[in-house]
Lab assay of single mutants.
Amino acid sequence: TRVETATETAWISLVTALHLVLGLNAVLGLLLLRWQFPAHYRRLRHALW
Rank of each mutant, 00 (worst) to 15 (best):
T1I: 13
T1S: 12
T1R: 11
T1Y: 15
T1M: 14
T1E: 11
T1V: 14
R2E: 13
R2F: 12
R2P: 11
R2G: 10
V3C: 03
V3W: 04
V3A: 02
V3K: 06
V3E: 06
V3T: 08
E4G: 03
T5A: 03
T5Q: 09
A6V: 07
T7C: 04
T7Q: 11
T7P: 15
T7I: 11
T7V: 14
E8L: 04
E8I: 02
T9M: 11
T9W: 14
A10R: 06
A10D: 06
A10S: 10
W11Q: 08
W11D: 03
W11G: 05
I12S: 09
I12Q: 05
I12F: 07
S13C: 15
S13G: 14
S13M: 13
S13D: 05
L14T: 12
L14P: 00
L14C: 09
L14G: 03
L14K: 03
L14A: 08
L14N: 05
V15I: 12
V15N: 03
V15E: 08
T16Q: 07
A17S: 07
L18A: 07
L18Y: 00
H19C: 15
H19E: 05
H19L: 10
L20H: 09
L20R: 02
L20E: 01
V21D: 03
V21I: 05
V21P: 00
V21Y: 02
V21K: 04
L22H: 02
L22C: 14
L22K: 01
G23K: 01
G23I: 14
G23C: 15
G23D: 10
G23T: 11
L24H: 02
L24P: 08
L24Y: 10
L24F: 12
N25E: 01
N25S: 10
A26C: 14
A26D: 07
A26G: 12
A26P: 05
A26Q: 07
A26I: 14
V27T: 06
V27G: 10
V27Q: 02
V27Y: 10
L28S: 04
L28A: 06
L28G: 07
G29W: 15
G29C: 15
L30N: 08
L30C: 13
L31N: 05
L31P: 10
L32P: 05
L32A: 03
L32E: 03
L32N: 00
L32W: 12
L32V: 13
L32D: 00
L33A: 04
L33C: 14
R34M: 11
R34H: 05
R34G: 08
W35H: 15
W35Y: 15
Q36C: 11
Q36S: 13
F37I: 06
F37A: 02
F37G: 01
P38L: 09
P38A: 12
P38R: 13
A39C: 06
A39F: 11
A39T: 12
H40L: 11
H40E: 09
H40C: 15
H40S: 09
Y41D: 00
Y41H: 04
Y41I: 10
Y41M: 14
R42M: 13
R43S: 08
R43T: 13
L44Y: 04
L44R: 00
L44M: 10
L44F: 12
R45H: 00
R45V: 10
R45P: 02
H46R: 10
H46L: 04
A47C: 07
A47H: 03
A47Y: 12
L48N: 00
L48W: 00
L48M: 11
L48S: 02
W49T: 00
W49V: 01
